[in-house]
């Protein structure tokens, strides 16, 4: 299937999802659905670097929070800016951070790269915590508009639609990459970097493309966050649970294809939302841990890998 046809199909699926959510008629569906969709974007973005290219990034929270804090800055300086524009700005900032981080750390392999990304997240959090303009450690309050600016309904429905469209974008991009020249280059890097280089693959440039793309999508996913939570502080924005969830979802779904992170995010994200409501929010992280252990033992290639055997 061509990328354009797949994109149209994904848009139809998104429209059906939105119609179904509206049909339920409970605003909580949008609040919960937003989080699941946000993880679809994060997991898909993570997988471009982690799954396709083989570089495990523990710094998801940093890219995500930088997108969110870009919105905080823009909200304070140019409040008339529409949310999609803020998302583009947040994406651009995070893509730049990805590029910079990539340039500094991509000579590291394996665990060393992962530790560097984790350290980068700590540095970014420290910077934001000490930046008074965005609220420092006190955090920042953002007043969420009451109504959607483009269609009749609550603002949360608008946020839901925005995240839905971003999910479509992320999945379409990830799928297009997987079947492209770029995807072959990423896979070659993941499998054997010196051999990739000997095959003519410009490994450094491709890795920078992967970090920038992955970071940019994470930043876009984080940009609407201040409007969703209405109160953002560094501890919650940079929460390690974003990084843990974002790694767990592709691993559970399967990292080799675009479908894996999507399945993992929908499955795990929904499960977490259900657990949060019915049991407790602390349990949702425990669930991630247990599922991860289970999958590593029973299906190390994830759900998609399980079916491809």
């Amino acid at each position: 299937m061509g990328n354009i046809r797949f994109g149209l199909l994904a848009l139809v699926a998104a429209a059906v999802t939105f119609a179904a959510a509206r049909a339920i008629g409970n605003p909580y569906v949008f609040f919960a659905g937003y989080v699941v969709l946000q993880y679809v974007v994060l997991a898909t973005a993570w997988n471009i670097l982690g799954g396709y290219t083989g570089y495990v990034n523990f710094g998801t929270a940093a890219f995500f929070a930088m997108g969110a804090y870009t919105t905080v800055v823009l909200h304070k300086t140019v409040p008339v800016l529409p949310l999609p524009a803020m998302m583009l700005a947040g994406g651009a900032i995070s893509a730049l951070i990805g590029l910079g981080m990539g340039y500094l750390t991509l000579r590291l392999r394996g665990t060393f790269f992962s530790i560097a990304t984790l350290a980068m997240a700590v540095v970014a959090q420290t910077l934001i915590t000490n930046w008074n303009f965005v609220g420092g450690s006190r955090g920042a309050y953002i007043v969420r508009p009451r109504l959607s600016p483009i269609f009749p309904g609550d603002y949360i429905q608008y946020l839901f639609v925005i995240m839905l469209l971003l999910s479509v974008l992320a999945v379409v991009v990830a799928r297009a990459i997987q079947h492209s020249r770029l995807g072959y280059g990423f896979a070659a890097i993941r499998d054997d970097e010196p051999a990739a280089e000997a095959s003519g693959v410009p490994t450094l440039r491709l890795k920078l493309i992967a970090t920038a793309l992955s970071g940019g999508l994470m930043g876009m996913a984080g940009a609407p966050l201040p409007y969703y939570v209405t109160y953002l502080d560094p501890a919650s924005g940079f929460s390690l649970s974003y990084a843990v969830n974002t790694i767990a979802m592709p691993l559970i779904g399967g990292t080799a294809t675009w479908l894996g992170p999507l399945i993992g995010a929908v499955l795990l994200g929904t499960l977490q939302q259900v657990a949060t409501v019915t049991i407790s929010s602390a349990l949702s992280l425990l669930l991630v841990g247990l599922l991860l252990v289970g999958f590593v033992i029973a299906a190390p290639k994830g759900i998609v890998g399980w079916f491809q055997r």
Partner: peptide, 12 residues
């Protein structure tokens, strides 16, 4: 070049 110890791309 070919590598002294073959280095194929194992997942491809």
């Amino acid at each position: 070049r070919s590598f002294q110890l073959p280095r194929p791309f194992p997942t491809l």
